[in-house]
């Protein structure tokens, strides 16, 4: 039931760093999350985008050294589509995602505590209803654990470099916008 103590300590350490980053990134705040969904505050996209670009470059660079291995989630159509709908609807009402919800509790936000208890409830419903849910999801089929490069028969670096270029364009464009906003005021 328990991982070895060194692994628990490592998890705690990694989590503390993650928590500090989320809190300093201001994504443990309702206003910032909803501001993103109302397409006004782009903090969430900036953080997620940069994390993905930096993360992808590093993981794919490390992959040939065999010090890391991929941990992909299967593309089960029913699970991904219905899960995404439930998740998106619930997150916009709650105003935090699972990680930032926990971080918002750490920041002392009372509404986040109510949501985290709800999260535990949602997980409970999933566990209790697992047999029929699993059967329901299975009927939509699954593509298995596949990456975009595998599906398209391309090299991962094509995707990583495209992501880097897109990120660079986004940074330059939004910088220009900020400048525009400043000068307009």
């Amino acid at each position: 039931m328990f991982d070895p103590i060194w692994k628990l300590a490592l998890g705690l350490f990694t989590g503390i760093l993650f928590g500090v980053l989320l809190q300093k990134g201001r994504v443990a705040k309702y206003q910032v999350i909803l501001g993103q969904f109302l397409l006004k505050d782009w903090t969430v996209v900036k953080i997620m985008g940069m994390a993905v670009v930096v993360g992808a470059a590093g993981i794919y660079a490390l992959l040939p050294t065999q010090t890391v291995s991929l941990h992909l989630k299967p593309l089960a159509w029913g699970g991904i589509i219905f899960g995404g709908l439930f998740f998106g609807f619930g997150m916009a009402i709650f105003g935090y995602c699972p990680g930032t919800g926990v971080a918002a509790c750490g920041e002392g936000r009372k509404d986040a505590f109510a949501g985290v208890i709800g999260m535990l409830m949602g997980a409970g419903i999933y566990v209790v209803a697992y047999p029929p849910l699993n059967a329901f999801i299975k009927q939509f089929g699954s593509e298995g654990k596949v990456t975009l490069p595998q599906i398209t028969g391309t090299t991962p670096w094509l995707w990583v470099i495209t992501l880097i270029v897109l990120a660079a364009v986004f940074v330059i464009l939004t910088r220009h916008n900020r400048h525009e906003m400043r000068t307009n005021r």
């Binding site: 993905v52 995404g84 439930f86 998740f87 419903i125």
Partner: peptide, 29 residues
């Protein structure tokens, strides 16, 4: 909201971190 969100995350086997960051950076479809 938290309940629906977590239920969805478990059906899909991931959340903003597991899918949104960790999965996309592995280029998982």
């Amino acid at each position: 909201g938290g309940m629906l969100m977590l239920f969805g995350a478990r059906i899909a086997q991931g959340c903003t971190s597991g899918h949104g960051i960790s999965g996309t950076l592995q280029l998982a479809a």
